[in-house]
């Protein structure tokens, strides 16, 4: 249903690129990106935890920066590039954050993990070797109700190591 190929697009249709794929969202400009992802695009990796920007479970990348999908409307993401947790891996190759969380088992119920992994990805893009204080600050908006924060801290450090190793290998 993307607008290409002569298909008429409703006037309130919003075009957005999600995980590298152009998508059109119709009749829901006022809805949140979170609702659009979960009900229209069937991307369930982005979770609902609060709907008010307090828990980070809905974190996605918008043009490479972490945003709360529950806090931006469909209208506002028009023309932007969105990456959800489903779009982080390249085929079977996990990104460094995903690899680190999986390797260390840095989750319990895992409901916060997609958001944590996306948040970590954004952090490492900005700050490839964050200090513990920087990690805590960057992830302050991410709740883990299973309270697995200690392992998350370790996983972020491990993710940073993995991405540096990768960079070295490809250099």
């Amino acid at each position: 249903m993307d607008g290409a190929g002569g298909v008429t697009v409703a006037s309130d249709a919003v075009r957005v690129v999600v995980n590298g794929r152009p998508r059109t969202l119709e009749r829901m400009p006022e809805r949140s990106l979170l609702q659009a992802l979960r009900t229209e695009l069937d991307l369930m990796g982005t979770k609902y935890g609060c709907g008010e920007g307090q828990c980070g479970a809905c974190t996605v990348l918008m043009d490479g920066k972490a945003v709360h999908a529950c806090q931006v409307s469909v209208k506002e993401v028009g023309g932007h590039d969105i990456v959800t947790v489903e779009g982080l891996a390249r085929g079977d190759e996990l990104n460094p954050a995903q690899q680190a969380f999986a390797e260390l088992g840095a989750f319990q119920c895992g409901f916060c993990t997609p958001g944590m992994v996306v948040g970590t990805t954004a952090l490492l893009q900005r700050t490839p070797s964050p200090s513990e204080a920087e990690v805590r600050e960057a992830l302050e908006g991410h709740l883990c109700r299973c309270c697995g924060y200690t392992k998350v801290l370790r996983a972020v450090q491990r993710a940073s190591e993995i991405s540096r190793e990768k960079a070295r290998r490809s250099a």
Binding site: T39, D42, L43, M44, G45, T46, K47, Y48, T84, V85, E86, L88, A89, L94, A97, Q98, Q99, F101, A102, E103, G105, F107, G110, F111, T113, P114, V117
Partner: peptide
């Protein structure tokens, strides 16, 4: 032991109760 399902968790593929969708489902 590594959780065999860890990859599903970090890729967002793990289906939680709130993620279940059935054909023709309403809310």
């Amino acid at each position: 032991a590594v959780d065999p399902a860890a990859v599903d968790v970090v890729t967002g593929r793990r289906v939680y109760a709130s993620d279940v969708r059935r054909p023709g489902m309403w809310y």
